[in-house]
């Protein structure tokens, strides 16, 4: 995105290329949450089945979950930041509902930002279970 665009009135903005209408960025937040959930689940399952046993402690597995969580939160944060920049493109307030390429671009950015917020909280909720449940029981 061109930083200069932030200060220009809408009619003088460079028109966003067609690929800016891509939906992929929207999927990043929930996608990272889903991968984080799966990794945590599989790590705990393998740890309890192969290493610690039914009544063992999660131990090092919870460190791994902490690491996954850190990486996931950074990824979701970056996605949210990217969404925020898109949302702030030019001069327009939400809900970004005009039938123009610029507004579509802002709308997708805004949606990405909100979904990233949701994914951030959901990822923290997944990690909380490891904090309070310390064993494989």
């Amino acid at each position: 995105m061109n930083e200069r665009n932030d200060d220009l009135p809408d009619e003088e903005l460079e028109a966003p290329p067609a690929r800016w209408g891509s939906l992929w960025l929207l999927t990043f937040g929930p996608g990272i949450w889903a991968i984080h959930f799966l990794l945590c689940y599989v790590t705990a399952a393998v740890w309890c089945a192969k290493v610690a046993g039914r009544t063992g402690l999660l131990g090092d597995a919870s460190l791994l979950v902490g690491l996954y969580t850190l990486v996931a939160l950074v990824g979701i944060g970056l996605t949210g930041w990217r969404g925020y920049r898109q949302h702030r493109f030019g001069h327009a307030d939400p809900p970004h509902d005009f039938d123009t390429a610029e507004d579509r671009y802002r709308f997708l950015g805004y949606s990405t930002l909100l979904l990233s917020g949701l994914s951030f909280v959901a990822t923290l909720f997944v990690a909380l279970s490891v904090v309070f449940i310390e064993t494989c029981e």
């Binding site: 909280v121 909720f125 909380l128 279970s129 904090v131 309070f132 449940i133 310390e134 064993t135 029981e137």
Partner: peptide, 13 residues
């Protein structure tokens, strides 16, 4: 929801 989740998780062990 965070408070309820923490409360519920604390009960589980």
């Amino acid at each position: 929801l965070t408070a309820l989740l923490i409360y519920g998780l604390m009960l589980i062990p």
